[in-house]
Design a protein around this nucleic acid. Structure first.
Length: 369
DNA sequence: CATCCAAATGTGGGGTAGAG
DNA sequence: CTCTACCCCACATTTGGATG
């Protein structure tokens, strides 16, 4: 959705330029309109008029008499249900039921104003939730209200221009070579196939490892097929229970094949022999759900004497080792199952930079001044 | 040690700002 | 009017304390 910002800026030639969304072309891309002026104030006023002109000229406000709760339920169960994955549905349901509906549910949809939403945000902040959790809750409300705007039940979204607590930027953390060696030693001692080894040498996500079957590994062609992911979510019909869901991987591009190298292949073949389960990582002869893998991982970490890290760090470690070995970004992107190299670049350019610095300093040392 | 439950974090797509 | 790095939001998973 739209970011805040006026979309007015000063040009090098001294004029002010304002932009507004005029229409959409046949592919759904935005067509912008432009307005110029010598003075900022003029552009701002004129732009506001144009924005109104192009967004509301053909709209009629419809009547909706229900409460916020009614609308949220309709929005999620009827309008969103088919469009989003079960895991997303489940997380939205939770945020609505636990936070939004108890605080705002009884109000008339059409009466909800930004002051009340601000009070809601204050209330959330007092609950000691993290900034990102507050964001995720407000996001759900905002999406639902946006739909109400599109349906012409309300004129504007009361969630626009809220000031929310700022989220800290999280750096990705990666194992050092030494830590990786220590962790591998511990993991290799295990009798059955270790999820840690798999993650370090394939970059698979925890849910993907959880759902991996021996039949997904083609030992003749040396390929691992990532076909499903497994996670536990709140049951959507009976809200008191949770259940394990098996689904297609995160996105279409996550469904992928990963080449199986020699050492990992030997390791897997050895482990396959004494494994009676259809799952590579198993628990009581069936899959081991992500929580179980995470639990075992924690024990490995403690034994190896490594600082407290998440399982996902193994995936980052795999990627970083690839970059260090000089694998190009496009290839890495495919391996990781990213849809585009954009994310891969955004995430790993830092380690590329370290690489370049190291290369330069090697050359530099020959200078001998 | 497995399961439940709520919170935290990662990922993809699209908009804005800034420059040409 | 066009190009694109960077940033934000919506969506999708992972994490870990509580509980049995």
């Amino acid at each position: 959705m739209s970011r805040k910002g006026e979309n007015i800026y000063k040009r090098k030639d001294g004029r002010w330029e304002g932009r507004y969304m005029k229409a959409r072309n046949e592919y759904g891309k935005i067509v912008y309109g432009y307005i110029y002026g010598k003075r900022y104030k003029y552009v701002k006023e004129r732009l506001a008029e144009l924005k109104v002109q192009y967004s509301f000229t053909h709209k009629n406000i419809h009547i909706y008499e229900g409460t916020v709760q009614d609308w949220l339920n309709h929005w999620l169960n009827v309008l969103m249900r088919k469009k989003i994955k079960l895991s997303t549905y489940s997380s939205y349901r939770l945020r609505m039921d636990k936070y939004i509906i108890p605080f705002l549910g009884k109000k008339q949809l059409t009466h909800l104003n930004s002051r009340e939403v601000e009070e809601f945000v204050n209330y959330l902040t007092l609950l000691n939730l993290s900034a990102s959790t507050v964001h995720s809750i407000v996001t759900v409300l905002k999406s639902a209200m946006n739909k109400a705007v599109v349906e012409n039940y309300i004129i504007s979204n009361p969630c626009n221009n809220l000031s929310l607590p700022t989220t800290a930027i999280n750096e990705i953390s990666v194992l050092t070579m030494k830590e990786q060696d220590r962790l591998e030693k511990v993991a290799l001692k295990e009798e059955n196939c270790s999820a840690v080894i798999l993650a370090l040498y394939t970059g698979l996500r925890i849910g993907e490892i959880s759902g991996l079957k021996w039949t997904d590994i083609d030992f003749d062609k040396n390929i691992i097929y990532v076909r499903r992911t497994l996670y536990r979510i709140q049951n959507t019909t009976n809200s008191k229970k949770t259940e394990v869901i098996m689904a297609e991987p995160k996105t279409k591009s996550s469904k992928r094949s990963i080449p199986l190298a020699k050492n990992l292949k030997n390791y897997l073949l050895e482990k396959q022999n004494n494994d009676s389960s259809e799952y590579v990582i198993f628990c009581k002869n069936s899959y081991a759900e992500p929580r179980v893998i995470s639990y075992r991982f924690r024990k490995n970490i403690e034994e190896a004497g490594i600082r407290n890290i998440h399982f996902h760090v193994l995936r980052h470690t795999f990627a970083t080792r690839c970059v260090e070995q000089g694998i190009d970004i496009a290839t890495l992107s495919k391996l990781m199952g990213h849809a585009s190299i954009k994310l891969t670049l955004d995430t790993y350019t830092d380690s590329l930079w370290e690489n370049r610095k190291a290369a330069v300093s090697v050359i530099d040392s020959k200078l001998g001044l």
